[in-house]
Computed example of a mutant assay.
Amino acid sequence: MNNPGECTPTPAAHVLCDVVDGVADVRLNRPERLNALDDGMFAELIATGERLRDDPGVRAVVLSGTGRSFCAGLDVSAFQAQADGRPWRPHEVARREESQQPADDDAPDTGDGDFGVPGLVLGRGQKAVWVWQVLDVPVIAAIQGHALGGGLQLALGADIRLVAPDARLGVLELEWGLTQDMTGTQVLPRLVGLDVAKDLTFSARRVTGEEAVRLGLATRVCDAPRDEALALAASIAARNPDAVRDAKRLLNHSLEGGMREGFRAERSAMERNVGSDNQRHAVREKLKGRS
């Protein structure tokens, strides 16, 4: 287990991160804006996820928001810029100016292959979500208040979503004349089914945490999602880290590959784990409780 530490956020501190006993506690930190997403928030989410991916001591992650909401979506200032015809993604404007690329060119950034989709260039919003899926360890989102638009897509990047019963979740992009562009069109149908995904998208209706669980949009309802998430993360951090990482990888593979490859990967993981130091320690700890 690693000692208490920090993920060293950027000076703007839009994202806070503390690592204690293998659990990374990541918090969106714009409570006065209901943790709305701006350019700085996107950059810090990506940077924080990448730092955690490189930290072998991290065994589980909790993703939550400070204040009364998880994330209310894209900051209204970005929509105002869109309405006025002004640039609303400063980092993309600067990148195009530096590279002298045409406006519709999305030139690759260094390290795009690290997001698990080699050969594909991801947008910043996609990276801010997908970085949590390419982490080797489980990521648990704790949702209270709002998870709307981009905020909901961010939550979809987690492996597990614990949600307050009175939370409000919604696919709101069409209200602003947009479509989802933070992996939501690909992830949402896998969770709730194609017809429900279309209903949520076309209607832009908000659902409660309880309905979200019924639809498959969230995992389970909790009165105190962050407390529950931290407790779950602590229990995961106490398990064999090699087996936990293999379990996430194998479960994700079930959505992407065929059964033949999946069965082969299962056997390889078992052969790798059984008899290892971490697995033998787990068995000894389990047997202690039976004596």
Score class of each variant (00 low, 15 high):
residue 1 M to L: 05
residue 6 E to C: 04
residue 9 P to Q: 05
residue 9 P to R: 03
residue 11 P to N: 06
residue 13 A to N: 15
residue 13 A to I: 01
residue 14 H to F: 09
residue 15 V to Y: 11
residue 16 L to T: 13
residue 18 D to K: 11
residue 21 D to F: 09
residue 26 V to Y: 05
residue 38 D to I: 06
residue 44 E to N: 11
residue 57 G to R: 04
residue 64 S to R: 07
residue 71 C to D: 13
residue 72 A to S: 12
residue 76 V to I: 12
residue 77 S to G: 10
residue 88 W to V: 01
residue 89 R to Q: 13
residue 90 P to T: 08
residue 93 V to K: 01
residue 97 E to L: 12
residue 97 E to R: 14
residue 106 D to R: 13
residue 106 D to Y: 13
residue 113 G to T: 05
residue 114 D to Y: 05
residue 115 F to C: 12
residue 121 V to T: 15
residue 123 G to M: 10
residue 134 V to K: 13
residue 135 L to F: 09
residue 137 V to S: 04
residue 138 P to W: 06
residue 144 Q to Y: 00
residue 145 G to F: 00
residue 156 L to E: 03
residue 159 D to Y: 12
residue 162 L to D: 07
residue 163 V to K: 06
residue 167 A to W: 09
residue 176 W to E: 11
residue 182 M to L: 07
residue 183 T to P: 01
residue 186 Q to F: 13
residue 191 L to P: 03
residue 193 G to M: 02
residue 196 V to T: 15
residue 202 F to G: 00
residue 203 S to Q: 14
residue 212 A to R: 03
residue 214 R to D: 14
residue 214 R to A: 14
residue 215 L to N: 06
residue 222 C to A: 15
residue 225 P to M: 06
residue 230 L to H: 14
residue 232 L to M: 15
residue 237 A to M: 08
residue 240 N to L: 02
residue 240 N to D: 15
residue 243 A to K: 00
residue 256 E to K: 10
residue 266 E to P: 00
residue 266 E to A: 08
residue 269 A to N: 10
residue 278 N to P: 10
residue 278 N to V: 01
residue 284 R to Y: 05
residue 284 R to H: 12
residue 286 K to L: 15
